[in-house]
């Protein structure tokens, strides 16, 4: 912690006074009835005071937090996460965080099973409504893409989506999300690759699956084989690149704002940690189901 200069203390005091004063004044302005002519000017005044108060308090918070900063900030970005020591084993930090996320999800599932599911009613509300909507959405989606006989596929993709979004939200707590590790996204993609071949072989047999390579003419077989192998690579790289890009943008914002990174990153985090992973994973599931459907159809 550094000792602040006189000017800094002055700015801090002034911003704190302005912020507290504005919020205090805002509370003092009475809000007339909605039909009243003075309603809109009073509302505007209150909004303006709110804005000034929050802005000054934000400046004050940033200045106070700046006192605790070390001063030499550097932007640290690597494509491979750091390694941690876990019970004598050296594992990647993304593996450890993924385990934590899995444990949390399993705990949540067990708690829901024990406490919430027995109390489900005919008319859903609250948690039941949320769960039913999510399950129904993904099961309808899988059915629409793939037909009726595979409820297991929908369950698998739902579990994967929960893990993926849980890992992305971890970044809000200050950890590096495991989804920014190529090995995690590649493992997702490899499972999809196995599923594609499993369903293809189950439907057509090994011979039939190999025969699809020679359609429409036998000459294209090497290219078709290559494009089959390219599927998991492209799925993995797409997910990895998107997640890493989002993480770098958020890191850059923290770096640029420094001690003033209060409040603003939360707004951006709503997009980069919640909405963006959701969309990307929707695309991942969509593509996986499309490829699986392609392998099954004749």
């Amino acid at each position: 912690m550094e000792t602040p200069s006189v000017g800094k203390i002055l700015v801090m005091t002034v911003s704190l006074l302005i912020g507290a004063g504005a919020l205090f004044l805002r509370a003092r302005i009475p809000l007339p009835a909605k039909e009243d002519a003075t309603f809109i000017p009073a509302k505007k005044k209150r909004n303006l005071l709110m804005f000034a108060g929050v802005l000054s308090l934000w400046v004050f918070t940033g200045l106070v937090l700046g006192l605790f900063g070390t001063g030499d900030r550097t932007l640290q970005v690597t494509i491979s996460p750091a390694r941690v020591d876990l019970f004598g084993f050296s594992v990647s930090s993304s593996v450890a965080i993924a385990w934590i996320v899995m444990a949390a999800l399993i705990l949540f599932a067990v708690l829901v099973r024990i406490f919430a599911v027995p109390r489900f009613q005919e008319k859903p509300r609250g948690l039941q409504l949320v769960l039913e909507t999510a399950v129904e959405a993904i099961s309808n989606f899988a059915k629409e893409k793939f037909g009726h006989e595979n409820d297991g596929l929908a369950a698998y993709f739902f579990a994967l989506a929960a893990l993926f979004i849980g890992s992305a939200v971890v970044e809000l707590f200050g950890f590096r999300p495991p989804t920014t590790d190529l090995s995690m996204t590649l493992s997702y993609a490899l499972v999809t690759f196995v599923l594609i071949n499993y369903f293809g072989i189950r439907k057509k047999g090994v011979k039939g699956r190999l025969k699809t390579l020679t359609k429409p003419v036998a000459v294209v077989a090497p290219f078709k084989l290559l494009s089959d192998i390219a599927v998991p690579v492209s799925l993995a790289c797409r997910l990895f690149g998107n997640m890493l890009g989002g993480m770098i943008v958020v890191d850059l914002l923290y770096y640029a704002l420094g001690a003033f990174s209060v409040g603003i990153p939360a707004v951006l985090g709503l997009y980069f940690n919640v909405f963006h992973p959701l969309i990307q994973f929707f695309i991942f599931i969509n593509l996986s189901l499309t490829f699986i459907g392609e392998a099954v159809e004749d």
């Binding site: 492209s234 790289c237 797409r238 890493l244 929707f282 969509n286």
Partner: peptide, 17 residues
């Protein structure tokens, strides 16, 4: 459209990676 955009976007992502 979303499917097509995802496939199109992947070229940019490959370059980025």
């Amino acid at each position: 459209l979303i499917l097509g955009l995802a496939l199109t976007e992947s070229t940019a992502i490959y370059g980025f990676v």
